[in-house]
Design a protein around this nucleic acid. Structure first.
Lengths: 216, 216
DNA sequence: ATCGCTGGGATTAGATCCAATCTGTGAGCT
DNA sequence: AGCTCACAGATTGGATCTAATCCCAGCGAT
């Protein structure tokens, strides 16, 4: 039950339903989701571990604000770890798994053409998830997935910028090509570059952080 | 309160007081530490996040067993992220901070000479913690410190092997030297090698994992 | 004799209750 | 008028209570 509450709150934070710096009281959430305060409490601790909310003893939780320094740190973690998974996946993948990843990437191209940001981000999650599953490094994967929601908060603001989805699609295809030809290190390096480019582009747009200074 | 319980349980797992695969019941811990079961529950969730215990719904927690694959994953995370912190620290450090790190490393040499494993590991933690503090990347640091307890479980078994402490001391001094001469990338690379060597040496001794198959 | 099933004890998950702490408003003082 | 302090309401953290689930011993059937 705590898990469901965490999932719901996570989505609300990522989607901006809960604004940065907004206070989250256990009682309000409990009433809204029709559960007791206990699962809410546990969910908030989980989200605090992911950095989505900040907890202060005897005060409560508030939505962690977006800020450039935090963005950089989140992407440092992804940049250091995701290539490891991609490289491992490239060494282990079989034809069937590769075909499945190709299919997912094809879907993402459709979303990109339609400028369907929500759809694209969802498919993108599945693509990365598919690669991670093949890599079979659950512990490393857990660290990365822990940063996903935060990363998506930044990307969601970022994707509003025009013409970025196509760039992403091309980079994904390059990674899959490298995996297909068995160039594990290349695949990892391409993934690393992909993440770094995303981070640098995001960093160039500090105006994305200004809104959301909402202080209840 | 939950934090204190987590700290205590973490120490007991690392020190082997709680054996691998041993079941941890909320009630028993609550009674032993003279708190209610609620903080124990929260502590166990925290420890599950660090991978020290495995939770199963409606069943409870048990101490995660040591195993070679998990060791590799833990060290992959450290190898990818700690050099980033070291490099950042090298770029930001001032003379006073450097002197403090030198002092800590001197302490570690004393422990190494005395073959004082517990003392050495404690000082080692302080050294790494000191470097991390200078790096000023709290989010990255949080990920690494989350892996620390697990890494220490393996190291603790490892340090029983003779003559390893001295190697470690030398490597630490090399890292500090690189930091002192402002060679940030060298410092990071040396740190990476330091971690990788530790991991490889550990992997060469699978017998360290055999004990602890204790299934309460 | 071994396997499967049932019932009781143990254990966890969730709800409710209570005490301690914080926040914020408003009165009183300078 | 502005600041300080105190009190009341709100909120969290911890304890206790209840229901659901699991584990396991013991019994019966094959």
């Amino acid at each position: 039950m705590a898990a469901e509450v965490a999932t719901k709150l996570r989505a609300e934070i990522v989607e901006g339903v809960l604004a940065p710096n907004e206070r989250i009281t256990q009682g309000a959430v409990a009433e809204r989701l029709e559960v007791s305060r206990l699962p809410v409490r546990e969910a908030l601790q989980q989200l605090a571990g992911e950095g989505l909310v900040s907890l202060e003893r005897d005060v409560g939780a508030r939505v962690t604000p977006l800020d450039p320094k935090d963005l950089i740190e989140t992407y440092i973690v992804r940049e250091a770890l995701e290539p490891v998974l991609t490289e491992s996946a490239a060494r282990r993948i079989d034809a069937e798994q590769l075909a499945a990843l190709r299919a997912i990437n094809d879907e993402s191209e459709v979303c990109a053409e339609r400028e369907d940001i929500d759809g694209y981000l969802a498919v993108d999650r599945r693509l990365h998830g598919g690669i991670f599953a093949v890599a079979d490094l659950p512990r490393v994967q857990a660290v990365i997935t822990g940063t996903f929601a935060t990363a998506e908060r930044y990307r969601r603001a970022f994707s509003i910028l025009p013409h970025r989805l196509e760039t992403s699609v091309v980079e994904h295809r390059m990674i899959l090509d490298a995996i297909e030809r068995g160039a594990a290190e290349d695949a990892g390096e391409l993934h690393r570059i992909h993440i770094r480019r995303t981070r640098l582009t995001l960093s160039e747009h500090p105006e994305l952080f200004s809104r959301g200074g909402d202080d209840g």
